[in-house]
Simulated assay, not measured.
Amino acid sequence: MLRFGTQMSRLVALNMQTVCRIPSSRNTQKLITRKMTQQRSPVDWNTSIPTKAAKDKDKIAPLGWFLLLIPATTFGLGCWQVKRKIWKEQLIKDLNKQLSTAPVDLPEDLSDLTQMEYRLVKIRGRFLHEKEMRMGPRSLIRPDGVETQGGLFSQRDSGNGYLIVTPFQLADRDDIVLVNRGWVSRKQVDPETRPLGQLPAEVELTAVVRKGEARPQFTPDHKGGIYLYRDLARMCASTGAAPIFLDAVYDAQAAKNGPIGGQTRVTLRNDHLSYLVTWFSLSAATSFLWYRQIVKRIPF
């Protein structure tokens, strides 16, 4: 009996130890919650919610908006050059069209010719061959409009020569005007080489109204009685002519014995294509830099 009691005591003690080793469900829940809390990464409240300082940092400063004027201005200049290009091309077409219209009589007031450049006019009178001048060197413009190759250092007589500018005494008035009779080769520069083209008789011809030229950049001064450009002031001073310059049109009969007419060039600068490409390129480049530096704040 005593032995049975001892065994029962040992069994009860063993069960009590087992019960103590197993935590209660409540303690188990607390333990699991504590472990999950420890494994979860801490929340950075400073980065998840933007502060006022961070918002102000993202704003574009007034200087940034002011710098936006650079790409905007260059873009506007590019658009303006597009309009200028269209206008200049149309003007060149109109001037070329005037060269094929019917000629008009020379106006009574010669000053009106300053507003009639590239217009065809009819004149009658005689050439003052003793006062003729040379202008060049120039290449020949053939009747079909093709310009032959020739220049200052070219030795080919077929493409290199001079323009003969001769004072022209008008028949119905006392005025003298300057007429570009046309092109001659180097071999025919001297009047003695073309005597059949130096007749003093009265003639009637059609010519194109031209204006004087300003001295081109890097162009030297006239030398040896040869003019490098249409310097009306000096030409008129040496001949006593009015400041009127005319280009004689092509005449097949006159070209056989004298200068070849029809040497008019429509010389209007048309660089607007290069200008608009330049302005639009600058606009694109500065727009990219503005977006990179001001908006994205990407350093170089």
Rank of each mutant, 00 (worst) to 15 (best):
Y162D: 10
E108G: 11
G182V: 02
D172K: 10
F218V: 10
V43R: 12
F153G: 08
V82A: 04
W279E: 01
I32V: 09
Q169G: 05
Y275E: 01
A214S: 15
D144T: 00
Y275S: 02
R34N: 12
A53H: 05
R3S: 10
N27T: 14
D112W: 11
E117H: 05
D190S: 13
Q90F: 04
D112E: 13
Q188P: 04
H222Q: 03
T6P: 11
V266D: 00
K59G: 15
M135D: 05
V43C: 11
R34K: 06
A241L: 06
T47L: 00
R297N: 04
Q17R: 13
G145W: 00
S283D: 12
I226E: 09
L77M: 09
N160K: 01
S283N: 14
T193G: 00
I176S: 02
Q188W: 08
T166F: 03
R234C: 06
T28I: 07
Q81G: 05
R234Q: 12
K30T: 13
L68T: 06
S281V: 01
W279L: 02
Q217R: 09
R156E: 15
R119D: 08
G76D: 00
D221N: 10
V146F: 08
A284T: 12
S139D: 06
Q155Y: 10
H272C: 03
H222F: 07
I22P: 01
G261A: 04
T267F: 08
W80M: 06
W80V: 05
E130K: 12
G136Q: 01
A214F: 14
R215C: 09
G212K: 03
S24M: 09
P259Q: 08
F168T: 00
K131G: 06
R119W: 01
G240R: 02
E147S: 14
D44C: 07
T206R: 01
T28S: 11
K55P: 05
S24T: 03
M1D: 11
V12Q: 13
Y291W: 05
K85H: 15
D58M: 11
P103F: 03
V12R: 15
R181G: 01
D94G: 01
T47M: 02
D157P: 12
S274G: 10
L77P: 01
I294P: 09
S274D: 08
P191A: 06
A233R: 08
G150A: 07
Q149W: 15
R34I: 07
T73G: 14
S41H: 10
R210F: 01
R3W: 13
K187A: 14
G136F: 00
N160C: 02
P200M: 11
L2M: 13
G261R: 03
P200I: 04
I22D: 04
P299T: 12
K57M: 13
L199W: 04
F300Y: 09
N15P: 13
Q81K: 05
M235G: 07
E204R: 05
W65S: 04
T6H: 15
T18P: 07
F245V: 05
K35D: 15
